[in-house]
């Protein structure tokens, strides 16, 4: 069993830059990314932390 695909942010990342890098072909990627990562929604001031897990796909269908 493997975890959902995830990445750690790179220096200077926010969800928009991370979405552009990881999901270049997906429309509205930043918003999609947010919907898959609600745990990051309360980060308006601190932004992404270097240790954050950021999922780059939705939960698997079961």
């Amino acid at each position: 069993m493997t975890a959902r695909q995830f990445v750690f942010p790179q220096a200077g990342d926010d969800l928009a830059t991370l979405a552009a890098r990881e999901l270049p072909d997906l429309a509205d990627a930043a918003q999609q990314l947010l919907s898959w990562n609600l745990h990051l929604a309360a980060r308006r001031s601190t932004g992404l932390l270097p240790s954050d897990v950021v999922f780059t796909e939705p939960p698997p269908a079961r």
């Binding site: 750690f8 220096a11 601190t46 932390l49 270097p50 240790s51």
Partner: peptide
């Protein structure tokens, strides 16, 4: 990876990049 301080700031360990850990 979860705790915050009295100012609601993430504790120092949460600012560590994977390379540090």
């Amino acid at each position: 990876f979860v705790d915050i301080d009295e100012h609601y700031r993430p504790v120092p360990s949460r600012w560590a990049a994977p390379a540090e850990l």
